[in-house]
Write a protein that binds this DNA or RNA. Structure first.
Lengths: 158, 158
DNA sequence: CCACGATGCTTCGTGTACGAATTATTCGCT
DNA sequence: AGCGAATAATTCGTACACGAAGCATCGTGG
């Protein structure tokens, strides 16, 4: 690995700009998802859940929270509100009565079919407009970055 | 621009993984910031505000919300709680009585000095460990991506 | 078989986060 | 001067989002 760490002052602007850009991309794509959701009377997270349930038929609350990277307590609230709107229903597992499965109701399934756009779709469309080479490079570098961060996180947890 | 858009199915996995990774990097670095903040009895956003005010001495509420990419109403709440804790104070501008400047109190300034780590620091450290070439490539591709998203956003607003 | 730790979900308290409505002030225009 | 649009901040209602505590259920070791 040649020239791994140049003095930090010289690359500070680049680093800051990269951080800025990633934050922009993340927040903007969330904002756009929210906009799509609003058109059908949903919130961002609710749209995400709806589309997930359309794909997987049913999911336990835990696996749902894992997929959307949120705590169980957060997802409980989201499901509460969606249940109130009649979009999903809870169903206790028969094999393990601690587990609750979340399913789409007819109304929920119908709504899910009406929405053509996936969450984060804009992000994905922008990505597919890159060249193959750029895509490969981007993925490679990001994975490298993720590895560094992961290492630091595990170090933290010691 | 050679080979700009290969069929979407072939690159779907790469695209999804890139999205996943960016989301991971964003959420993880926020989580880590939050952890640092907790150690001194602050929340993530409060730490960000504290460090910003340490750098700029004082900022109007609007410019503060612009910098942390949040709505005025959100920042009003954050400042309310920080004021309650005696970390900052509000001061009406004399030239324009609509404007409120936020300043650190003695207590706030002292706390800011005690915290060595910047928000998103881990992110930055990981970035500086990349090679110069990787950094340059990453920035170039991300900027391209941002341009595409921006175009789409402006198109939306028509 | 049964005590006990682990697991799955909910509840509660607090802190963002947003958008719409409100208030106070400023600025442009006539 | 003075009316009306624009701007700065706040208030309000709703929805995440998290962590700690609580409750029910499961699984295992003794």
């Amino acid at each position: 690995m040649a020239n791994p760490s140049p003095p930090i002052e010289t690359i500070r602007p680049e680093v800051d700009q990269i951080v800025e850009t990633i934050i922009y991309l993340y927040t903007e794509s969330r904002r756009l998802t929210k906009g799509i959701a609003r058109e059908v009377g949903l919130t961002g997270p609710q749209l995400t859940v709806l589309k997930l349930l359309e794909t997987f038929q049913d999911l336990s609350l835990s696996s749902l929270s894992e997929r959307i990277r949120a705590q169980n307590s957060t997802v409980t609230g989201i499901i509460d509100r969606m249940e109130r709107e009649g979009l999903v229903c809870r169903e206790r597992s028969k094999s393990d009565r601690r587990v609750v499965y979340i399913k789409l109701t007819e109304k929920g399934a119908k709504l899910a079919r009406e929405i053509r756009v996936e969450p984060l779709e804009i992000f994905r469309i922008a990505l597919t407009s890159l060249t193959q080479a750029d895509l490969k490079d981007l993925l490679r570098i990001l994975m490298k970055l993720q590895k560094r961060v992961l290492a630091r996180v595990e170090e933290e947890e010691t």
